[in-house]
C-alpha cells in the first residue's frame, strides 16, 4: 500500500477477496451458477409519502417513478428503485453516483416530509445468476422464488440462511437475482453461497 495520497485511491469492496472464488464457481459449474460481487453500487434510502408531491418530484428528478406495488422494482437505464415499504425505497445506481443522486433527490423533496440517506456503504450486492440460481437460493431463502411468484422485477426483504438480505429479481433482459447483504454479513453470505454451490460445481446428474 502506498502512502502517496495524490494517487487515486482504489476503493475496497466487502467481497473483494471473494472475486476469485466466485469466478471459479461460475467457471466450474459451466455457468449453471454465476456468482459475482457488483461492488460499490450507489444506494440511497428514500422515505416519503407515496401519494404526496415528493413522490412526483422524485419521478421528475430521477426519470423513474418509485414503485407503489409492494415488493416490486422499477428500472430505468441507470437506476433501480426497490420498494421496501409503503413509504420506503432503495434507489440503486452506478458506483460513484451516490453524491449526485443524493443531491438530486434532496433538491426534489426539499420542504416535504421526506428523508434521503446515502446508504451505499451499508450493503454490497452479489449477482446470483445461471440456470441453477433459483435452486441455489432455495437452499437458504424461505420465499417462493418460482417465476409465478417471484419473477423479474420482484424484490423482498428476506433471509438467506441466517442473514437478512434484500433480494431482487433482475429485469427480463438480465436474468438472475441481486442479493443485497449488509457489508458486515457479506463474508458469511459469500461463504454460504460458495458452500451451497458445491453441489452444482461438479456434475451431480448421476444422483438418482
Amino acid at each position: 500500500m502506498t502512502a502517496d495520497t495524490e494517487q487515486p485511491l482504489a476503493p475496497v469492496s466487502p467481497l473483494v477477496r471473494y472475486a476469485g472464488r466466485f469466478a471459479a464457481v461460475t467457471r466450474a459449474s459451466g455457468g449453471a451458477v454465476r456468482l459475482a460481487e457488483l461492488p460499490l453500487l450507489a444506494q440511497l434510502s428514500v422515505r416519503l409519502d407515496a401519494k404526496g408531491p415528493a413522490a412526483e418530484a422524485v419521478r421528475f428528478a430521477l426519470g423513474l417513478a418509485l414503485p407503489v406495488e409492494p415488493d416490486t422494482v422499477a428500472f430505468s437505464d441507470e437506476l433501480a428503485a426497490l420498494w421496501l415499504g409503503p413509504d420506503e425505497w432503495l434507489v440503486v445506481g452506478r458506483p460513484g453516483s451516490a453524491a449526485g443522486l443524493e443531491e438530486r433527490l434532496r433538491a426534489a423533496v426539499a420542504g416535504e416530509h421526506a428523508a434521503v440517506t446515502d446508504v451505499s456503504g451499508q450493503r454490497t450486492t452479489v449477482l446470483v445468476g445461471g440456470a441453477r440460481a433459483r435452486d441455489l437460493l432455495a437452499h437458504g431463502c424461505p420465499l417462493d422464488l418460482h417465476p409465478r411468484a417471484f419473477g423479474p422485477g420482484r424484490c423482498a426483504q428476506t433471509t438467506l440462511a441466517r442473514a437478512g438480505v434484500l433480494l431482487a429479481g433482475r429485469d427480463e433482459h438480465r436474468p438472475g437475482y441481486w442479493l443485497l447483504t449488509r457489508s458486515s454479513f457479506a463474508g458469511y453470505v459469500a461463504d454460504w453461497l460458495l458452500d451451497a454451490a458445491t453441489e452444482y460445481v461438479a456434475d451431480a446428474t448421476s444422483i438418482t
Binding site: V12, P14, R17, H139, A161, R162, S184, D191, D195
Partner: peptide, 18 residues
C-alpha cells in the same frame, strides 16, 4: 444442514478486518 462449523452463526466483520 450447513449451519455448522464456520457457517453455524454469521460472523460480522468490519471493513478493517484484514
Amino acid at each position: 444442514g450447513r449451519d455448522r462449523g464456520a457457517l453455524h452463526d454469521p460472523v460480522r466483520v468490519t471493513a478493517l478486518h484484514d
